[in-house]
Structure formats: C-alpha cells, structure tokens
Design a protein around this nucleic acid. Structure first.
Lengths: 112, 112
DNA sequence: CCAAATTACTTCTATTTTGTAGAACATCTA
DNA sequence: TAGATGTTCTACAAAATAGAAGTAATTTGG
C-alpha cells in the first residue's frame, strides 16, 4: 500500500469543503468556504488545480450549473463528492488518527 | 496566512512518528513505526528526505547517537520534536478539525 | 438602445515544494 | 570478508501555489 491511497493535505481540505457545501459548491464558493472556515488564504488557481486532480482520480464529479441571473454571468461548475471521495477522506483521517493515538504535545492537548 | 504555516500530509505522519518515539527515534525505527502503525509502506528515502526538510524548517532537531553494540554498527541519527514542530502539528490538525466539523460522509461515521 | 464598463467565474501557464524510490556508501560484529 | 544496520545521494513524479488571461453575463451612460 504505497502513497496513492492517501490524500494530500490540501486535497483533504478541498474535498471537505465540497462535502460541506452539499452539491452547491463551485470554485469561488469553495474557496470562500475554506478561507472563512480556516482563516487560510488560498489562490483561485490552487482550488481549481486541486478540484481537477480530484475529479480525474474519481473522488468527485462536476457539472455545469445554469447560468445565474446575477450580474457576472459565466456559468458555474458545480462539484460533489463521489463515494470514493468519502472513503478516501475517512481513510486519510483514520490513518492520521492512528498516528495521533496517545500522542501528547508538550504544553498542548492530549489527543484521545 | 498562506501555505507555509501548514504541514504536508507525510510531514505530519513523520513528525507524529518522531514524537511517538520520544527522542529514541532514528531513520529506520521511524520508518518501522509508521509501517506498523498504519500499514503503509514507505521507502527509506522518503523518510530521510522528509526528516531533513522538517529539521531545516526548525520543526525538529537531530544528534548523533552512540554507535550501538549490536551487529551492524553505523551510528544512529536521533530525532526529537522542537516546540515549533508540536505547534505546527496542532495547528495542522486543528485546521482539519475545523473543516471536518459537522461533516457527514454517506454510509460513514459522523465526525463531531 | 447599444457599446463600454463592471462583475463573477473558469482556464491556462509557470514554478516551487512535497513525496517517492532505490542504489550507493559507511561502519560495526561475527 | 561477509553480513547486518544505518544513512546519504541521485533522480524524478506528484501536489501545491500564484496570478494573469480568457469568457460570459449584467448594468449603465450617452
């Protein structure tokens, strides 16, 4: 079982943001979700590159949304998790949990 | 706050393995710890490259151990976390926790 | 009422940082 | 000197990052 089976750090974040937005997410909104949720600044290029990679790997799917009636009309590309994406998330976090199990960080919190 | 403040996926794993071994860890043993703990196969090159990078970033420190009295004698290079490493781990996992908060994976477990 | 400005979004191009593998090399003991 | 245990080196693939360029709609001003 070498690397291919685990998600990269940012891949996890993006996949989680997609899931949070429950099939309503698209590039720009996914970016906002991550920024608001974590305080982390992300470039728009990083978002789309990662979404594309995740889709190519079969972890998520996308489709064209209806062009919206708001000003600024380019149509949105929506994203949603595939079951494989959910499994990959659970597997990746599960692996980290295994590593965290019983670990104490000096001056920090003990984790399980 | 752009990327520099978060650890990569494998960086987290290696840092956690170092902490698990409580200043007793060295390249080969860190590798074994990861493999036993997660079932994930890792090349020795991956381990050392990552350890070196983490040390250069100030997340851990290393020193030469006494050459051991067991057969096969090249002396070990030991590793331990620096406070910055602990902080980075807590920060990275904390960020992931923020993203996981309230997320449900279909057919999977809900995570706080 | 039409052209230009504005807005919201996605694609593209380029580069740096992480992750990965395994061969080569070093050094000890039997 | 053969075998065991460890680290270093070399090379390359994949992930992460930034921002400019491109696309397509709406509004606004003359």
């Amino acid at each position: 079982m070498s690397k291919g089976t685990f998600l990269g750090e940012f891949e996890q974040v993006v996949l989680l943001a997609v899931q949070r937005m429950d099939s309503q997410g698209y590039g720009m909104s996914i970016r906002r979700e991550i920024e608001h949720r974590t305080g982390r600044g992300v470039s728009i290029g990083a978002i789309y590159a990662t979404l594309e990679r995740l889709e190519k790997k079969g972890f998520l799917k996308s489709w064209e949304g209806d062009s919206t009636p708001v000003r600024g009309g380019r149509s949105r590309r929506h994203f949603a998790l595939r079951p494989e994406g959910g499994e990959a998330l659970v597997r990746s976090q599960g692996m980290l949990d295994q590593m965290w199990d019983g670990v104490e960080i000096a001056g920090g919190p003990e984790v399980q």
